[in-house]
């Protein structure tokens, strides 16, 4: 008889099934949000790289000329104030130089393929730390999630595929014993994921308020209007570089004649 084969679900089991469905939905949503955040971070890093190479490097050049001018003045005036000012200018020039030519300046344009995005989404769903069942699992997932994020930022599809392949062979998601324990675990996972989604939203909002994001937004608007914001910024600094170079040349020749 059919009733012998298909057992009616207990209320606990029904509850668990519903929660698992919700969990699956939220996991998908979380993966989307993680993708959004990772993309935003990568785009910002790429823009920062571009900005530092084009505008930052010019600021460093400007500061270098400023420092030279201050040093020439200090040489000619010889006052403690002039010397202190020269030292300060020199420090700023050095800081600007290392900032403009540091690691951040090496980040290349971020142009993710649909395949890369799909791989990231899949990987994020499967390794996400907030779907962990215990602390040990969580630590492992956190490590994996870091790798996934790094691979995505680097645009490395193969690395994402390797991570996914590794998951298949690892003993995953050992089920707990008993329906009550399962339900508790699922509820805990749900809470963790909701918290994480809220945290991501907050992080995206915070990131969007940074100078970098505001500048990028401006550059994006300018680009749709057919002009290059960074070029305009470069031009404005270039003018100052030229003017200060002129002053340095004047100072050094006037110094030579004394």
């Amino acid at each position: 008889m059919k009733t012998d084969l298909v057992r009616r679900l207990t209320p606990e089991e029904e509850e668990l099934a519903a929660k698992r469905e919700e969990l699956a939905r939220l996991e998908a949503q979380l993966a989307d949000q993680e993708l959004l955040l990772a993309s935003l971070k990568a785009e910002l890093a790429a823009f920062e790289g571009l900005y530092l190479r084009r505008v930052g490097a010019l600021y460093a050049e400007l500061d270098e000329w400023n420092a030279r001018l201050a040093e020439l003045r200090a040489e000619q005036a010889g006052t403690p104030e002039a010397k202190a000012e020269a030292a300060e200018s020199r420090t700023q020039a050095e800081e600007a130089y290392s900032a403009a030519h540091g690691e951040a300046a090496e980040v290349q344009p971020f142009l993710p393929s649909p395949e890369l995005k799909a791989l990231y989404r899949e990987a994020a769903k499967r390794v996400h730390p907030d779907t962990a069942i215990d602390e040990k699992d969580r630590a492992r997932r956190e490590r994996l999630m870091k790798e996934v994020n790094a691979a995505y930022a680097a645009g490395d599809e193969d690395a994402l595929r390797r991570i996914l392949a590794g998951l298949d062979s690892s003993p995953d998601a050992v089920q707990g014993s008993g329906i009550g324990a399962d339900l508790i675990r699922v509820l805990r996972q749900l809470k963790q994921i909701r918290d994480r989604i809220a945290a991501i939203e907050l992080e995206i909002a915070n990131l969007s308020e940074t100078d970098l994001a505001k500048l990028k937004a401006k550059a994006d608007v300018a680009a749709t209007e057919g002009h290059d914001l960074l070029e305009e910024m470069e031009a404005s600094i270039n003018v100052r570089v030229i003017l200060i170079k002129h002053k340095v040349e004047e100072k050094s020749t006037s110094g030579a004649s004394i």
Partner: peptide, 24 residues
Amino acid sequence: QHTALTKVGAKSLVARGRAELRAR
């Protein structure tokens, strides 16, 4: 330390650009 410093430096270069842009 160096990486941390350049991070701060890069941030300040960005802030500087944005502030000047605003002023302009």
